[in-house]
């Protein structure tokens, strides 16, 4: 087959132009804009669970440990000594590490050294949900960011997406690291990602989460959409921080400073 030099150049340039068009057009009108849409719950929902942690009331080691243990025992969270690959649903850390962007140079020593309880923020606009390729993590109608262990394939996208480090991968066989077993709740298997689930199973049955129960009044829990709820009152009356608000994830775990 023979072809004129002129025809060859024509065909090649059409091809290149077409490639560019489809690339840019695809990003602008296609999937990209859809993905970037916010995932706010519709206004018809009546419940949006939120948690307020009174950091001033958490003083001693015992205050923290009782809450953390209550959660981890009830949910069969393994106690893994390897700090890099540990699994935790609720944990303790410093102000600087928990609120890195809220730190200013002359902040008080007391605040800087004060330990904070950290957990999954159950964001209103959760980045982990957006990246999950199998919809194993999703947002419930009441705002809880759920993790379906049955469907998780352990790709760790959500761990990369979560700005709060709330997700942990099971690098070790979790059953071998259990101190005690709660027969009412499953364990996890090797190779899935797990995190706090706001005790959805207890909320559905009309109970408060384990951490709230164990904190004896130091953690408030309630419906953010109900104007008369305890959490709304506490949020209105105190100085409140959320973790990394500038990211636009709209956390639903609030901290009284």
């Amino acid at each position: 087959m023979s072809m004129k030099r002129r025809d060859f150049l024509k065909i090649t340039s059409y091809g290149i132009a077409g490639t560019f068009l489809s690339l840019t057009g695809g990003v602008i009108v296609g999937r990209g804009s859809e993905l970037l849409k916010k995932m706010d719950t519709s206004s018809s929902e009546k419940v949006k669970w939120a948690m307020v942690i009174n950091t001033r009331a958490f003083q001693t080691e015992e205050d923290f440990n009782s809450v953390i243990l209550a959660c981890h025992r009830a949910h069969n969270v393994p106690d893994i000594p390897d700090k890099i690959r540990e699994v935790k649903w609720i944990w303790k850390d410093t102000f600087v590490r928990g609120f890195p962007t809220a730190e200013t140079k002359y902040i008080g020593d007391e605040i800087k050294k004060r330990p904070f309880l950290l957990l999954c923020n159950h964001c209103d606009n959760p980045p982990c949900v957006r990246v999950c390729p199998v919809k194993a993590t999703f947002k419930r109608k009441d705002g809880i960011v759920m993790q379906d262990m049955h469907r998780c394939i352990g790709c760790k996208f959500c761990m990369a997406a979560c700005p709060y480090g709330a997700r942990n991968y099971n690098f070790y066989p979790p059953r071998e690291y259990l101190r005690s077993v709660n027969p009412e709740f499953p364990t996890r298997s090797l190779g899935v990602v797990e995190k706090c689930i706001f005790c959805y199973h207890r909320l559905d049955e009309g109970l408060v989460p384990y951490c709230v129960e164990a904190s004896k009044g130091k953690i408030f829990f309630g419906n953010l959409l109900d104007e008369n709820s305890e959490v709304r009152k506490v949020i209105a009356e105190n100085i409140i921080l959320v973790r990394k608000p500038e990211l636009g994830t709209n956390p639903k775990v609030f901290y009284i400073i």
Binding site: F138, R140, K141, D142, M146, D148, H150, P183, E184, F185, P186, Y200, H201, D204, E205
Partner: peptide, 25 residues
């Protein structure tokens, strides 16, 4: 599993009208 995890349901009503908690364990 789907009802409990994704549809926020807790109880199962059996054909004979009894109510059970939807939970394997």
């Amino acid at each position: 599993r789907d009802k409990k995890i994704r549809k926020m349901e807790v109880n199962y009503k059996s054909p004979d009208g009894k109510i059970y908690v939807m939970s394997l364990q």
